[in-house]
């Protein structure tokens, strides 16, 4: 049972966490919020953007603020699954050789999968179990991952050379996908100022504990959402499917597969976390709108026509948002 104090503590912790991250990261408020949302929802986040926009720094700052165990995996084409999850190695103890499991970098609280789409799909898939079940299976042994656990992946745009698009099954396991935009003029000036003067960037001190995060997750799940909004979310999700009666014409024309039910869960949970971060006590329609693109954009699969014509998924989702009435 969540108490009034739990609610106040959780909100205080995350206000402090947000401000400590914003001291390091210039701009990207929506990215920071998306990362905290994923953390509160027990989900994972994928950040997409060209190199040099501060994706890795954001993740490192978040991990430092949380005071949790952090690991970074740089995905390359020759990266193997065992390099991620770990492997059994032969060790000698008291003159006796035996296989001992050596955990990979996935065994941490905050895992940065940097440029995840540069690895082969086989290696990418090595993260599936960890992301969804929070377990790792090596050989005949299954190892649990410590909570709070979050995978923050970055990827370059698919069109870039030497990238492998993530399998649909894997990308669906990311709660949210955030596009890292190029900083504005003022933000760029601030970035150069922080990085070229003094001691440079200093990661923040931890402002939250693992227990704070877990308590906050419980608080978020208790935040109520109206039945009418649940119905609205369901209609939004159905509208992304080309064969649905709720879908707009462009969805029928350019989309091969719509969002999975996991998308609806992501949207509702994300809306709850968004409401919590906004200091609200219930989910509003604005929360759904703010999470709508981040929760569903990476779950839509365009058909050949959509790919050939370079249709923007964000535009399709904008059509869906306009097409579905708030009150049916």
């Amino acid at each position: 049972m969540i108490t009034e104090r739990d609610l106040e503590v959780a909100q205080t912790v995350f206000r402090r966490l947000t401000s400590s991250i914003e001291e390091v990261i210039v701009g990207h408020d929506e990215i920071i919020r998306a990362a905290l949302t994923a953390l509160l929802c027990k989900g994972n986040l994928i950040l997409e953007g060209v190199p040099g926009l501060g994706k890795t720094l954001l993740v490192r700052t978040l991990a430092a603020s949380l005071g949790l165990k952090f690991s970074r995996i740089q995905f390359t084409p020759d990266l193997m699954p065992a390099d991620i999850v770990g492997t059994d190695i032969i060790t000698e103890e008291s003159g006796r050789r035996q296989f001992t499991f050596s955990p990979g970098p996935v065994f941490a609280n905050v895992v940065l999968a940097d440029e995840i789409n540069r690895a082969t799909p086989k290696t990418q898939s090595a993260l599936l179990e960890a992301m969804e079940e929070r377990t790792v299976t090596v050989g005949s042994h299954t190892y649990g991952l410590e909570e709070p656990y979050i995978v923050l992946a970055t990827q370059n745009p698919i069109e870039m050379e030497g990238t492998y698009p993530l399998p649909e099954a894997q990308i669906d396991r990311f709660l949210l996908k955030a596009n890292v935009r190029f900083p504005s003029l003022d933000e760029l000036v601030a970035i150069t100022e922080r990085n070229t003067e003094g001691v440079g960037i200093r990661l923040p001190e931890p402002t939250a504990t693992a227990e704070d995060i877990l308590t906050s997750r419980e608080v978020v799940r208790e935040i109520p959402i109206a039945e009418g909004l649940r119905d609205y979310v369901a209609r939004l999700l159905l509208a992304t499917h080309p064969n649905s009666e709720h879908s707009p014409p462009r969805i029928r024309e350019y989309v091969e597969y719509g969002a999975s039910p996991r998308g609806a869960l992501a949207l509702i949970l994300g809306a709850k976390a968004n409401a919590f971060l906004a200091g609200e006590v219930n989910v509003r329609r604005e929360d759904i709108r703010e999470l709508f693109h981040a929760a569903l954009a990476h779950r839509l699969v365009l058909n050949f026509k959509g790919e050939a014509e370079g249709v923007s998924v964000d535009e399709l989702l904008a059509d869906v948002w306009e097409h579905v009435p708030a009150n049916a």
Binding site: P224, I225, A226, G228, V283, R284, R285, E286
Partner: peptide, 23 residues
Amino acid sequence: PLLLLRVDDALGLKARLSSLYEL
């Protein structure tokens, strides 16, 4: 629930009435 959501939208209550019903 839908009625309450209409009232929420009309009065700018940020879905509180309907959320209260849910609770």
